[in-house]
Measured scan of single mutants.
Amino acid sequence: MVIEDPKTNKLIEVEKLPDGTYKVTIYDKKTGEKKTITMSKKDLEKLLKAL
């Protein structure tokens, strides 16, 4: 799943891993910076609600 946040000009890509956690990659379209973090479903839901 890919989500675009027009306010921050970032793309957020979410991928479910076999162990039940989620790999979240955040791309900054302005700088080209890429950050990848792994989080639980509960933390991911908090992140998505904040957008």
Rank of each mutant, 00 (worst) to 15 (best):
M1H: 13
M1A: 15
M1T: 14
M1S: 11
V2N: 01
V2S: 02
V2A: 03
V2G: 07
V2K: 00
V2M: 01
I3K: 01
I3F: 03
I3R: 00
I3Y: 05
I3L: 02
I3N: 06
I3A: 01
E4L: 03
E4F: 09
E4Y: 12
E4W: 14
E4A: 02
E4P: 01
D5Q: 01
D5W: 03
D5G: 00
D5Y: 06
P6G: 08
P6E: 10
P6N: 07
P6F: 08
K7Q: 12
K7R: 06
K7M: 10
K7H: 12
K7N: 08
K7G: 11
K7I: 14
K7W: 08
T8L: 04
T8S: 11
T8H: 10
T8I: 04
T8D: 08
N9D: 12
N9A: 08
N9W: 07
K10E: 09
K10R: 14
K10S: 13
K10C: 06
K10N: 13
K10L: 14
L11G: 02
L11C: 04
L11D: 02
L11T: 11
I12S: 01
I12W: 13
I12Y: 15
I12F: 14
I12E: 02
I12N: 01
I12L: 06
I12P: 01
E13V: 13
E13M: 13
E13L: 15
E13K: 09
V14C: 03
V14Q: 01
V14H: 02
V14W: 09
V14K: 01
E15D: 13
E15Y: 15
E15S: 09
E15P: 00
E15F: 15
E15C: 05
E15A: 08
E15I: 13
E15H: 09
K16F: 15
K16S: 14
K16D: 11
K16E: 12
L17I: 11
L17F: 11
L17P: 00
L17T: 05
L17A: 10
L17D: 08
P18D: 12
P18S: 10
P18A: 10
D19V: 09
D19M: 13
G20A: 09
G20S: 11
G20C: 13
G20L: 10
T21E: 03
T21H: 07
T21F: 05
T21D: 07
T21S: 09
Y22L: 02
Y22Q: 00
Y22A: 03
Y22W: 10
Y22D: 00
K23V: 08
K23Y: 05
K23D: 02
V24F: 01
V24I: 07
V24L: 11
T25V: 07
T25P: 00
T25Y: 12
T25M: 11
I26H: 05
I26Y: 04
I26D: 02
I26N: 03
I26W: 04
Y27P: 01
Y27T: 07
Y27W: 13
Y27K: 02
Y27D: 03
D28V: 03
D28S: 04
D28A: 02
D28T: 05
K29V: 04
K29M: 14
K29N: 06
K29H: 06
K29E: 03
K29P: 02
K30Q: 13
K30L: 13
K30A: 06
K30M: 11
K30I: 07
K30G: 13
K30E: 12
K30V: 05
T31Y: 06
T31S: 07
T31D: 07
T31V: 05
T31H: 09
T31G: 08
G32C: 08
G32P: 05
G32M: 05
G32I: 03
G32R: 03
G32T: 08
E33C: 07
E33A: 08
E33D: 08
E33G: 10
K34M: 11
K34V: 14
K34N: 05
K34D: 08
K34I: 09
K35A: 09
K35H: 10
K35P: 02
K35S: 11
T36C: 13
T36I: 14
T36P: 06
T36K: 03
I37E: 06
I37C: 13
I37R: 10
I37K: 09
I37A: 13
T38D: 04
T38F: 15
T38E: 03
M39H: 01
M39D: 00
M39L: 12
M39S: 03
M39P: 02
S40N: 05
S40C: 08
S40R: 14
S40E: 05
K41T: 14
K41V: 10
K41M: 14
K42R: 12
K42N: 11
K42D: 11
K42L: 14
D43S: 05
D43Q: 11
D43H: 09
L44P: 00
L44E: 00
L44A: 09
E45S: 10
E45R: 08
K46I: 15
K46H: 15
K46L: 15
K46S: 12
K46C: 14
K46R: 10
K46T: 13
K46W: 14
L47H: 01
L47Q: 01
L47A: 03
L48D: 01
L48I: 07
K49P: 07
K49D: 08
K49T: 13
K49W: 15
K49Q: 08
K49C: 11
A50F: 14
A50Q: 04
A50M: 11
A50Y: 13
A50K: 06
A50C: 14
L51K: 01
L51M: 08
L51Q: 03
L51Y: 02
L51I: 06
L51P: 03
